[in-house]
């Protein structure tokens, strides 16, 4: 016979878990409670002699379906709190009549029926279920294929956006960045172009001017920065072996007239 303790455990877990559907405010909490409900049901299936189904329940429901729910919940904003204040007049009472009524009716109907459990019952193991599935229910299996295709296509149709514009090249991206008024170069790392490899030295732009915001504000506040000036003259020194460096008197280049191709060539 069926284990009584298991039943009560399952009953308490599932009912309390599912009540969160009515009373919990946060979507994520509800989803997690439903996960427990699903696990509880899996336990019930095992207790009812359907261990295979119990496993499937965990895999399909807690593993896939509920995770999908959580995923979508996160997509739409997981920390939304829902107000439980009822906005439709009388809806609570109607819900009470409807849900309470259906519960009462079903329970009274089920309670009236006396069905005794069959004695010769073996647990539904995968092999037997497979045989049933592919003999008696093979047509259903085939048709389920169509159902799954529909679901997959449907999800794609409603959520997938193909590339509508041609993929933008790096050059175009950079041009757009500059047009938008951004720094012509990437935000430099501290120490770039510096002769001094330290966080307290500002980076120099290609023209050799120090870029102040490349040094942490914290260091600035503590007056622990190094001036770039002492390095500048090194750049100005024509003997400097570094070929990348620009002469200090080089005309400043405006971002707008910079030839991207040329810039690309330079960076290489």
């Amino acid at each position: 016979m069926v284990n009584e303790v298991l039943f009560w455990v399952v009953a308490i877990i599932t009912v309390t878990g599912s009540l969160s559907l009515l009373f919990a405010r946060k979507g994520a909490h509800i989803a997690m409670s439903i996960v427990t409900v699903m696990c509880g049901l899996a336990a019930a299936y095992v207790g009812l002699g359907a261990p295979f189904l119990g496993v499937v329940q965990i895999v399909v429901y807690t593993g896939a379906v509920m995770m999908l729910f959580l995923f979508v919940l996160m997509l739409v904003g997981v920390d939304q709190r829902e107000s439980l204040k009822e906005t439709i007049k009388g809806q609570r009472w109607i819900a009470l009549v409807g849900a309470g009524g259906i519960a009462l009716l079903l329970i009274s109907v089920i309670g009236r029926v006396e069905l005794t459990s069959s004695d010769q019952f073996t647990d539904g193991n995968p092999e037997e279920i497979a045989i049933e599935l592919f003999s008696q229910y093979v047509l259903v299996m085939e048709v389920l294929g169509a159902l799954l295709i529909t679901a997959a296509v449907g999800a794609l149709v409603l959520t997938h956006t193909p590339r509508l514009t041609p993929r933008r090249t790096q050059v175009e991206l950079q041009a757009a960045r500059i047009l938008a008024g951004a720094d012509p170069v990437n935000k430099p790392m501290p120490g770039v172009y510096a002769r001094h490899n330290a966080l307290d030295v500002p980076a120099l732009d290609p023209e050799g001017n120090p870029i102040d915001h490349s040094v942490s504000r914290v260091l600035e506040a503590r007056h622990q920065t190094q001036e770039g000036a002492e390095f500048r003259h090194q750049l100005a020194d024509p003997d400097n072996p570094d070929h990348d460096a620009k002469p200090a008197d080089a005309p400043p280049r405006d971002a707008h007239d910079r030839n991207p191709r040329q810039g690309e060539g330079e960076s290489r």
Binding site: V2, F7, A11, L22, E82, G98, I102, L106, I110, G111
Partner: peptide
């Protein structure tokens, strides 16, 4: 124990689910 209890549990869960459809805006 008679497995019919599970059916009653099913009826209760069914009603709670239905109530959720009626009551939850999300």
């Amino acid at each position: 124990m008679n497995p019919m209890n599970y059916v009653i549990l099913a009826a209760i869960l069914f009603s709670i689910g239905a109530a959720a459809v009626l009551l939850r805006r999300n």
